[in-house]
Amino acid sequence: MMAYMNPGPHYSVNALALSGPSVDLMHQAVPYPSAPRKQRRERTTFTRSQLEELEALFAKTQYPDVYAREEVALKINLPESRVQVWFKNRRAKCRQQRQQQKQQQQPPGGQAKARPAKRKAGTSPRPSTDVCPDPLGISDSYSPPLPGPSGSPTTAVATVSIWSPASESPLPEAQRAGLVASGPSLTSAPYAMTYAPASAFCSSPSAYGSPSSYFSGLDPYLSPMVPQLGGPALSPLSGPSVGPSLAQSPTSLSGQSYGAYSPVDSLEFKDPTGTWKFTYNPMDPLDYKDQSAWKFQIL
């Protein structure tokens, strides 16, 4: 009977010793046993002879290597770790002494450095960015050149030099007046198309007034536009458009034309069986010896 009264063996659950049927240790109110408190290391007290050895090595170098620390530790009968900690504390003490010396050398008012006064946003004049500046400075420094007289040679050079070769001289006033084509001369031969040399188009003023001019072949195509416009036809070669000034309004060009419109200028042929003959000019830059190549039959 006494065997049943004795408590059973101890069981360990999660490293906790349980005594038989008792489960009081598993209750929430019972805390787990805490780790033992780490003991504080005792402070090391250095003797005068030990301090002399350490100070002598510190005077040589503030960062001794492990071999120098072990050698000193053997002399003063201390572990190497204590020597390492002593050098660490000695360097910190040396830095603190240097900072105190710097503070003593500075004057009393030198510690508080005078800061520059901050400028207020409204006091300083700042350039306004509302208006974009002129990058080319046209509004201040540029002045347009004065327009020359209508009959000045410089204007003629600016007008005619675009179309004339570089080897030719500017046309005088008398020749510029001949550039304007007359109405009857352009409409006299509506079906004849003559190819003149390129030099005649640039230099010869008579080429624009003769039936064999460069633009005589364009007349049949330009004249039928007159009834559609409801007024006189516009002429690209009329009046002052080739003269001194090219800047004319469309209203000033509306009254200039080749001449009176005639039914002869239409595109319809009077004789459907007729042929169109292209007159060959020996001055043509295209060297075609066979003139029969310039004739064709309209079917």
Rank of each mutant, 00 (worst) to 15 (best):
L229I: 10
A196F: 15
G151Y: 07
A114V: 06
Y142E: 10
V13F: 08
S245H: 09
A207Y: 14
G137Q: 07
Y11L: 06
A293Q: 02
R37W: 13
D284T: 12
D284R: 14
G259E: 05
A198E: 01
K75S: 10
R41I: 14
P263K: 13
S169N: 02
S213F: 14
T273P: 02
P184C: 11
W86M: 12
D130H: 12
E71V: 08
P21W: 13
K118Q: 01
A207G: 03
P232D: 03
D271R: 11
A35D: 07
G239L: 10
T273S: 06
R119Y: 09
E53Q: 10
Q297K: 05
P33T: 04
T273L: 08
T273E: 02
G109F: 04
G122R: 07
S204E: 01
A207R: 05
R98E: 06
M193H: 01
Q96G: 07
S254Y: 07
S182D: 01
E80W: 14
L136Y: 03
H27S: 04
Q297P: 01
Y195L: 11
K88S: 14
L253F: 07
Y261C: 04
K295E: 05
T129L: 06
P127S: 08
A293W: 11
V157H: 04
S252A: 06
N89A: 14
S210T: 07
R40I: 12
F278I: 15
H27R: 09
P211D: 01
Q297W: 14
T123N: 04
Y258F: 09
L78H: 05
R48C: 06
D140M: 04
G243F: 12
A247R: 12
G148V: 03
T44N: 13
P211I: 12
P197S: 06
E80H: 10
A68I: 07
N6H: 11
V131H: 05
E71Q: 11
P33I: 10
R98H: 05
Y258H: 02
S188Q: 02
E55V: 09
S150V: 05
Q100N: 07
K102I: 01
L18F: 12
L146V: 04
Q100G: 10
D134G: 05
E42L: 11
P205K: 09
L136W: 08
Q297D: 00
A117F: 11
P170E: 05
G274C: 06
T45A: 04
I76S: 15
D287R: 14
E42A: 04
H10R: 08
V157D: 02
A17P: 01
R40T: 11
D271N: 08
Y214H: 01
S262G: 10
L74A: 09
H10W: 15
K289W: 11
K289S: 02
Q62G: 09
L229D: 02
S206V: 07
E53G: 12
P144G: 05
T275S: 03
V131W: 06
Y142H: 11
M225T: 01
M26W: 12
Y288S: 03
S152I: 07
L267Q: 00
Q50W: 15
Q101R: 10
A156K: 03
K38L: 11
P9K: 09
L54C: 15
Q39T: 09
Q105G: 07
D134E: 08
P135L: 07
Q228C: 13
S252F: 11
P220A: 08
A15H: 09
